[in-house]
């Protein structure tokens, strides 16, 4: 199947951070969650995809064309929400939309007004008077009003309350319901992705840890919990990706749940791992053990 987005060997070097050979791809009609802790490289990757920064190495293909050399044509087909920004906030929403509309050949005012009504936003109000959630909705209304096919959303739910976040998740699901639109959604709030993501790409310290479909992650990853005296036995399996310890025992992350079902003693507890468990164990649980299978 044709890929909507292909990131191939992307590299970007800063003084204190390196994005190192980042590669992943998305097919049309799906939501990909791009997860990782703060400072992992999510925004740097997204900035490169949106042509905001220039990568040192690597290639970005969008809709089958290389971004470098076709940026204007490609960006006509992308809608975006970037971080905390809701554009020039001293303007009212209609004025800001007036500016944005001039960048897009297929801008549709009817669609924009429809989304503004649907999201219960007053276009005559200054954007700075909107709440954080309303600003995200406004950015989304703009992204939806020029018939974009790929939506790139960088931390859109950051700073929003759970009710607003759940409302946004519903909107994202509606967006892809026609099977033609695709969403790349970066977040460190992994619970947002539990119900809506089809694929997960996990980045940590500038490197991709994995990029795969969520169902396989949910079936293959597991938490193995046990007593302190069982720790070395579990680590010795060579199947542990991260381990956290407490006074009474440990919690280890494995990507081979079946191996533990077959071979582990009954006293070990094997539980389903959430995306948050996976991220936390990778990030916090791989610092002091030399037997981790990473």
């Amino acid at each position: 199947m044709n890929k909507v987005l292909e990131v191939i060997g992307l590299e970007k070097h800063y003084d204190n951070f390196t994005l190192d050979k980042v590669s992943f791809s998305i097919e049309p009609g799906y939501i990909m969650g791009y997860i990782g802790p703060n400072g992992a490289g999510k925004t740097t990757t997204i900035n490169a995809i949106l042509d905001i920064i220039k990568p040192d190495k690597g290639k970005i293909m969008l809709f089958g064309k290389e971004l470098n050399g076709n940026a204007c044509e490609i960006k006509q087909r992308i809608g975006f929400i970037i971080g905390e920004n809701a554009f020039y906030e001293f303007m009212n929403a209609k004025e800001m939309a007036g500016i944005i509309s001039r960048f897009y050949k297929r801008w549709d005012w009817g669609l924009f007004n429809k989304y503004m009504r649907e999201f219960e936003l007053d276009p005559g109000k200054k954007i700075e008077s909107y709440s954080r959630g309303m600003k995200v909705k406004f950015a989304l209304a703009c992204a939806l009003s020029h018939h974009a096919e790929l939506f790139i959303l960088d931390e859109p739910t950051s700073g929003l309350d759970p009710v607003f976040r759940s409302e946004l998740m519903e909107i994202f699901q509606q967006i892809i319901s026609d099977g033609e639109k695709t969403i790349l959604f970066s977040t460190h709030i992994t619970s947002d992705l539990d119900n809506i993501a089809d694929y997960i790409t996990f980045i940590y310290q500038g490197r991709i840890v994995f990029s795969r479909d969520k169902d396989s992650i949910m079936t293959e990853f597991a938490l193995v919990k046990g007593r302190k005296d069982q720790r070395d036995m579990v680590l010795g399996s060579g199947k542990i990706k991260g381990m956290l310890e407490s006074d009474v025992g440990f919690s280890a992350l494995t990507d081979d749940r079946n191996w533990f079902f077959r071979n582990a003693p009954g006293s070990l507890v094997i539980e389903r791992a959430t995306l948050e468990d996976i991220m936390v164990h990778f990030v916090r649980g791989n610092k002091k053990y030399d037997k981790l299978a990473i």
Binding site: L50, D51, K75, F87, E89, F103, Y104
Partner: peptide, 15 residues
């Protein structure tokens, strides 16, 4: 003030 360098290049324009 509004970090426009963070979003203007994302529109369909070249640098």
């Amino acid at each position: 003030k509004y970090n426009s360098d963070n979003f203007i290049p994302a529109f369909p324009v070249t640098k």
